[in-house]
Structure formats: structure tokens, C-alpha cells
Nucleic acid binder design. Structure first.
Lengths: 197, 197
DNA sequence: TATTCCGTTGACCACTTCGGTCAATGGTGA
DNA sequence: TCACCATTGACCGAAGTGGTCAACGGAATA
């Protein structure tokens, strides 16, 4: 099937399921926004439920594979590692703009444990890999709780990128990864001064 | 009107409008979850729109008034000030559990400028008051960008409380403010070491 | 006791929207 | 010419919508 049409269907579905609960999400809206006919949607998916389940699988696999593929495993600095992950996520969101809010809805309907299991099923050891493989924890000061420090780094980068993406939604420009990286670094330098030797 | 019933109506409405767009929010669901009859809801509110507008006003005024009332204006440490604000918000959320997600929906449908204007109309100078009135910025190291530092402090406290509230939703226990305050401090001490003289 | 009052009920209305179906269409390659 | 298949959109019965209103019941007043 035509890949551009495929993307339209995916984005329209992500949008509808992000804005409405499964029950209230309307297949009529999806086909209208995707620019296809009702019959075609039901040609590819046998029911609304099947479309929804397929979407969930698609989103998780896409995000996990992109991260695993594009991450630089030689980077030993946890600051840079976390930054990389968020930048990769932003690239995916640029292609599928409604993926972020759709994921949030999925997160809310599952418990933390279910979520972890789901991800571990797709890619065993995913979390421990991305946040610790080849990372040099010796860079932290001895008296710093590395676990808490990592949380602060993560929270800072996530909130910063959230604020950026909120602004991005309104304009129609492309994401300026260089500018983001530069401004993020200004925050990270401040944190590095405290956490690293 | 009975205040306990009033709270039930408010919480049921917050819940419904948080989970669905205005158009798809169902007054039938609201009366069912509030445990009242359809007629009674339309006795107090002439239409779904009026209920929605009243709710928005209620939420903003409640949050603003609670913060202005309970804040300790003698506190000169911005860390403590931000912590206070988040703790006050958590108290309100404990009473109206769906207020947080309802507010998020409102935030998304308005631009940042509209939002600020709305709040300034209810309480002129609100933002500049709560984040700077009586605050001692001299505590920051000279070479620290106070504006960025405040953002990091805010993000850390907000993300920490978000994570706590996510866990809180699942259990039915009361919020343990002392435990929160203690664990928050562990994060804040790490930041204070860098940012303050 | 009789009467008024009012908070409250829920069956009911006309109307919209729902998920899903299917006969028909049109283009393509054999 | 025919077989094939992606694609269309009118159509279905069912479910749900916002809002109305005659009637109820218990308390207060006369």
C-alpha cells in the first residue's frame, strides 16, 4: 500500500485515539481526516479494536527500534546519552506528530509494571541497556546519589523538550535540532557542574 | 445546596470533561457518576456549555485563591517557595482528584498568552508575585543564570510530584505530605549545592 | 389537617452519530 | 476480454445525545 497514504491513516488514527477514549473515538473521523473511504479502512482492519491494537504495537515497536538503532553506544556520558534519546524521540514525533499524545493515553491506561513488561517483551533488557550500557558512572562525584541525579537530568531534558514541542505544534516550521541541542546544553552544563567531579 | 452533593457534581463533571472533548462529554455520564438525576443538573445549569464555563471559572479561582491564601510570603528561599506552591496544588487535587487532568485539557485548548491573560484577570500580577515577591535572589551564585536555575527547580519538583500523584491515583490512601516533603528535599539539596553560594 | 412550596426525579423526545456492510466502480495486467 | 483487487460511499439498525416537563414527596406554613 502507498506509504504516504499509510502515514495519513496512522496519523489520523493516532490523533483520534489521543483525543478520545477508545469507545468514543470515531472511525468516521479517522477516514475523513485520512482522506480515505470507510470501506478502505475496514478492508485493512476488521474492526476498530483491531486498528487500535495494531496502532499500539506499531507505536511501541517504532519508538524502541528507532532508539536502539540510532543511539551511539560509545557515548559514556549519561548526560549525552539521555539527550540523544530525547532527540531521537523528537525525530519520530516530527514524522508522526500525534504519537506523543497517543502514547500518553496508553501510559495512563496501563500500570507502570504492565508498561515495563510490554516493552521488555518487544526488546528484552531495553531500559537497563539504554540507561547504563557503556555508561561511565565514575564521572559522578562520590557523594552524589547517581540514581537521583539521573532523574533530575531526565526531568530537565524532558520538560525542556515538552516546552519546545508545545511551541512547535503552533508553528509549521521544522524542528531546529541544532538550536535545541545548544539550549539544552546550557541547562546541562549547570547540572554537570554539580553532579560530576 | 448540600455541599457534599455539590462536590460530587463538580468531580463528576471534571472527570467527564477531562476524558472527553466538550462536544463528546456526556451529561448522562455526569449525572450517573454524580448520583443525581438529569433534571437536577439542568435545574442548576441551563445547558452543558454553561456548566463547562462555570467549571473553568471555578477551577481557576479555586487554585489561585488557595495559593495566594496559603503561601508563606516571608519565605525568601525560592526553593521553598516553589515547593510550597506544589504542595498547595496537591492539597487541592486531593479534594478534587480530576482537577489536574481537567486543567491540562484547558491548557491545551488555549495559547500561553490567553492563559496568562485569563489568570491576570482573576488576580493581577499573580505570576510575578508568587515567583519573586520577597524572594532573595542574592542567594544564587553570581555566575548562575537564576532564570534557568528556577526552571530546573520547578521542573524537578513538578516531575517528582507528578510521579507521586500517578502512584497515588491507584491506591486510595491519603497523600503523605511529610514523606513527599522529605524526599523532595533530597533532590533540592543536590540542586542547592550548585546554585546557591 | 390542608395547602403551598421547591428540590428532585426519570421517562421521554427528536435528532445525531455510531461501527460495520456490501454492491458497485475503475484501473491494471494477463 | 477477463480476472483481480483496491477503493468508494450510501446505507443499516442500534445506541446515545442534550434538553424538557409532568409528577412526586417531604418539610414548612397556615
Amino acid at each position: 500500500m502507498d506509504s504516504e497514504k499509510r502515514k495519513r491513516i496512522i496519523n489520523a488514527s493516532l490523533d483520534e485515539f489521543a483525543k478520545n477514549s477508545f469507545k468514543k473515538a470515531s472511525t468516521n473521523n479517522i477516514v475523513k481526516n485520512a482522506g480515505i473511504s470507510k470501506g478502505l479502512l475496514y478492508h485493512y482492519f476488521s474492526s476498530k479494536k483491531e486498528l487500535y491494537e495494531w496502532l499500539k504495537k506499531f507505536v511501541f515497536e517504532l519508538m524502541i527500534n528507532e532508539i536502539l538503532e540510532k543511539i551511539d553506544w560509545n557515548e559514556a556520558d549519561i548526560f549525552e546519552r539521555i539527550k540523544q534519546i530525547v532527540l531521537i524521540k523528537m525525530q519520530v514525533i516530527e514524522e508522526y506528530p500525534n504519537l506523543a499524545s497517543f502514547s500518553k493515553v496508553i501510559y495512563e491506561e496501563k500500570s507502570y509494571e504492565e508498561m515495563k513488561e510490554l516493552i521488555e517483551n518487544i526488546s528484552p533488557g531495553f531500559y537497563s541497556q539504554i540507561y547504563s550500557r557503556n555508561i561511565d558512572f565514575g564521572l559522578f562525584k562520590e557523594d552524589i546519589d547517581a540514581h537521583k541525579a539521573i532523574k533530575i537530568i531526565q526531568w530537565t531534558i524532558e520538560k525542556y523538550s515538552e516546552e519546545y514541542l508545545n511551541g512547535f505544534k503552533l508553528t509549521n516550521e521544522n524542528i531546529d535540532y541544532e538550536a535545541i541541542s545548544k539550549e539544552m546544553d546550557e541547562y546541562l552544563i549547570m547540572l554537570k557542574m554539580t553532579f560530576y567531579k
